[in-house]
Design a protein around this nucleic acid. Structure first.
Length: 749
DNA sequence: CTGGGTGCAGTTTTT
DNA sequence: CTGCACCCAG
């Protein structure tokens, strides 16, 4: 098959021709480093898909020799589905190919999943019999095993003073008063959370530990604490997401890794000959090192991304990798930066020309984005090439005296749209910083929509822990492990719970449980029996029950058996079970073989579950649930039911598009992010220092500007700012640009 | 329309 | 503790 024949099959499925100046060159250039700088809605993923097809069907590269990574599981699945869809058309056209080519052997996924799969496939000795920790498990593991968390003394005080920015925000929210000048360490779960951020960052930014230790003081304390954590992981056979990547890099540098990379001519080990990376703007330094190592011998590395849409610094992503890709290749491979082919995808097929222009003007209007290194050099203006046109105001705002009034005007505008122009609420989207339904965030907007009979869809509103079935299950559980609480919920303070937030939460669960059991004796009987059983056991002995079993038994009673018939409730209870499973899997320090799932009786108060176990449960697990909130589980396939109006965070909306986009929260000022500070603090110890040198304030501003840019670029037909009077004055999202003011009804589209 | 005073509520995201 | 949203005086 040649390129012409491939395009003849692909283009009818795609529905529009691939751009001969922009997309085709990206598809056809196979060899050497390729740096694709793509604007929003420019068909970058499509270019990557067709490039893959071209390598497989035209160049006849073995699919097993091609690696394609993206940022999320969802995006990876989407990418593979598209490839499969095209492949099926190609196979229909030439059935013989189906026998010859195993498309499923493509190495496609998130970098993390590929690291895991490949090391298992090759039985890398450094990655055998490890349990991979997800974020909750990592947090719980650190909580139990890190000296930084376990040591309550003032030993680590200087370190906590140094990293105050990682914990102080939470102090103010969950304590009635903060520690002020920090004369005591923060509480345990805050220490655990901060420790996780620091440990992950040390690995992902490839910090030189010796260099850090030699700095002395808090840096030495930190190096020791990190090494202690790493040893604990090894001792217990655990691996976190960050170390998954460092282990993979080790693997690549081993003999086995060489077999994987170079192959041996067999079908089983064809070697890796092409690597493609989507969403490269969110890559971190260790991932950059992995990609450059993977392609060290042939340089066939193609990265695709939009430096203006970097959103994941909190996760270690640094846009520097995208902006300085040519120099990074040069530094690592010893080539010249201009041997890296740079291609721009600047056509926008998504939005009305006015929206395209608005986005372009927006990002360029900030001096901080014009500084050298803020964006990829030479980035051209976005050019609108979509089919959407028409002479109507495509960008504007809705205002009101207060948030409530603004929300009302917004709801009326949507009502009017539905009555006259659009068919479904899901053709709109409301994007905001936080989707919690509180008075400052999504609350007024959700209510205003309901008043005009439009149902919002807001699965991430963090109401999981407030759901009847979850509260009842947890209420029953804590009643079993904490008899004081069962007898009198307000005695929470006496039951080893000190944090007021945790106290309130637990008290609410028990009350809900008691309300439900007023008419469901079977469940309360089970709880009484369990309490009696525990009371009959000798002090300081292991109970023969796992907390997961207790939860299962609770769920076997009414009203849960009835609730399980409701898919939404059943789904949520499944998530609760998963959380318990995770907690139960955390190894118990000091008692080999046992885990947090095993209960022990107290050696002090006869007939109770150990005080220490309870305290750890409340502080580590409940503390985290309370502080983070929990969201409902989401169906993977569903973006939004079509008869609802989605309320989303900008991160959620990334990669999606909607005909009508409403954005709230334009008054936001850049406020110092802890991830920016941490990045800066550790930068002096990096093995591959960043090639850029923006100040913390500059990076913070750039991040905020990019954040809004991503939101605005979601809109296809109309982009509407939701701005109460006070917001119109300034802020980074709007800055008084001259746009149309939408009243309660829209002009004809 | 501006600005100071008061009162209240309290991020987000992923492997 | 901050920072905002809102109110009211000027």
């Amino acid at each position: 098959m040649n390129m012409q024949q491939l395009l003849q099959i692909v283009q009818p499925v795609l529905g529009y021709p691939l751009d001969p100046k922009e997309q085709i060159p990206v598809i056809s250039q196979a060899n050497g480093p390729l740096w694709v700088v793509a604007g929003p809605g420019s068909g970058k993923t499509e270019a990557l898909v067709v490039r893959t097809l071209k390598l497989i069907f035209v160049d006849r590269v073995s699919p097993k020799s091609i690696m394609i990574t993206t940022f999320t599981e969802k995006a990876a699945k989407n990418l593979f589905d598209r490839i499969l869809n095209y492949a099926s058309h190609i196979f229909q056209n030439d059935p013989a190919l189906q026998q010859a080519i195993d498309i499923h052997s493509l190495r496609i996924g998130t970098l993390h999943s590929l690291c895991n799969d490949i090391m298992l496939e090759y039985r890398h000795p450094g990655y055998e019999n490890y349990r991979l920790l997800d974020d909750l498990e990592q947090y719980l593991f650190v909580y139990e095993h890190s000296d930084l968390v376990q040591d309550n003394s003032t030993n680590y005080l200087p370190l906590w003073q140094r990293f105050d920015y990682l914990v102080s925000h939470w102090d103010y929210i969950t304590d009635s008063a903060g520690w002020g000048d920090r004369t005591r360490p923060p509480n345990r779960w805050r220490r655990a959370k901060a420790a996780v951020s620091i440990f992950n960052r040390i690995v992902e930014d490839m910090i030189d530990l010796n260099q850090m230790r030699n700095q002395g003081g808090v840096w030495q304390l930190l190096s020791d604490a990190y090494e202690d954590y790493m040893c604990n992981l090894e001792d217990h056979g655990r691996c976190d997401f960050a170390h998954l990547q460092s282990k993979f890099l080790e693997f690549l540098n081993s003999l086995l890794g060489d077999l994987f990379l170079s192959g041996d001519g067999s079908e089983r080990h064809p070697g890796i000959t092409y690597v493609m990376v989507d969403e490269y703007q969110d890559t971190n330094p260790i991932q950059e090192a992995i990609y450059l190592k993977l392609t060290e011998s042939h340089h066939n590395l193609c990265v695709v991304g939009d430096d203006d849409q970097a959103l994941y610094r909190f996760r270690g992503g640094t846009v520097d990798c995208m902006v300085t890709f040519d120099r990074a290749c040069a530094r690592r491979w010893g080539i010249s930066p201009n041997q890296v082919t740079k291609k721009f995808l600047s056509a926008n097929y998504r939005s009305h020309p006015d929206i395209v222009r608005y986005c372009d003007d927006y990002i360029k209007s900030f001096p901080v984005m014009g500084l050298s290194g803020a964006r990829v050099a030479g980035k051209p203006v976005l050019v609108s090439k979509g089919g959407i046109s028409g002479n109507y105001p495509a960008v504007g705002y809705v205002t009101g005296k207060t948030i409530e009034e603004t929300a009302d005007n917004f709801a009326r505008l949507v009502r009017d749209l539905l009555d006259n122009i659009i068919q479904l609420p899901s053709q709109c989207a409301l994007l905001m910083r936080s989707v919690r339904e509180s008075p400052r965030y999504a609350g007024p907007f959700a209510e205003a929509l309901r008043r005009v009979a439009i149902q919002p869809y807001n699965p991430r509103s963090r109401t999981f822990l407030k759901q009847e079935e979850i509260m009842t299950a947890l209420g029953a559980f804590v009643s079993v492990i904490d008899p004081n609480l069962a007898a009198n919920p307000t005695s929470a303070a006496l039951s080893s719970i000190k944090g007021p937030g945790i106290q309130r939460m637990v008290e609410g669960w028990v009350r809900e449980y008691q309300r439900i059991t007023a008419t469901n004796q079977a469940l309360s009987n089970y709880v009484s029996q369990s309490l009696a059983y525990i009371a009959s056991q000798a002090p300081n002995s292991w109970l023969g029950v796992n907390i997961l079993e207790i939860l299962y038994r609770i769920l076997a009673h009414e009203p849960f058996s009835t609730w399980e018939n409701d898919p939404e409730r059943s789904y949520r209870l499944g998530k609760l079970t998963k959380i318990f499973e995770t907690y139960a899997s955390v190894p118990y320090p000091g008692s080999p073989g046992s885990t947090r799932g095993n209960l022990r009786t107290s050696n002090v108060s006869q007939g109770e579950v150990s005080f220490g176990w309870r305290q750890d449960f409340y502080y580590s697990l409940v503390g985290l649930l309370v502080s983070e909130g929990m969201s409902d589980p989401e169906e993977e396939e569903i973006i939004c039911p079509e008869d609802r109006l989605p309320i989303m965070t900008v991160h959620q909306a990334k990669g999606l598009q909607f005909p009508f986009v409403f954005v709230y929260g334009l008054n936001q000022r850049p406020s110092q992010e802890s991830s920016v500070s941490l990045e800066d603090d550790l930068s002096q110890f990096r093995q591959n220092p960043s090639l850029l040198a923006f100040s913390q304030q500059q990076r913070t501003e750039q991040d905020l500007i990019r954040f809004y840019y991503v939101a605005y670029a979601r809109a296809q037909y109309v982009l509407v700012h939701l701005a109460p009077q006070a917001h119109l004055k300034g802020g980074f999202g709007f800055a008084g640009r001259d746009v149309h003011r939408f009243q309660q009804s829209v002009p004809t589209v």
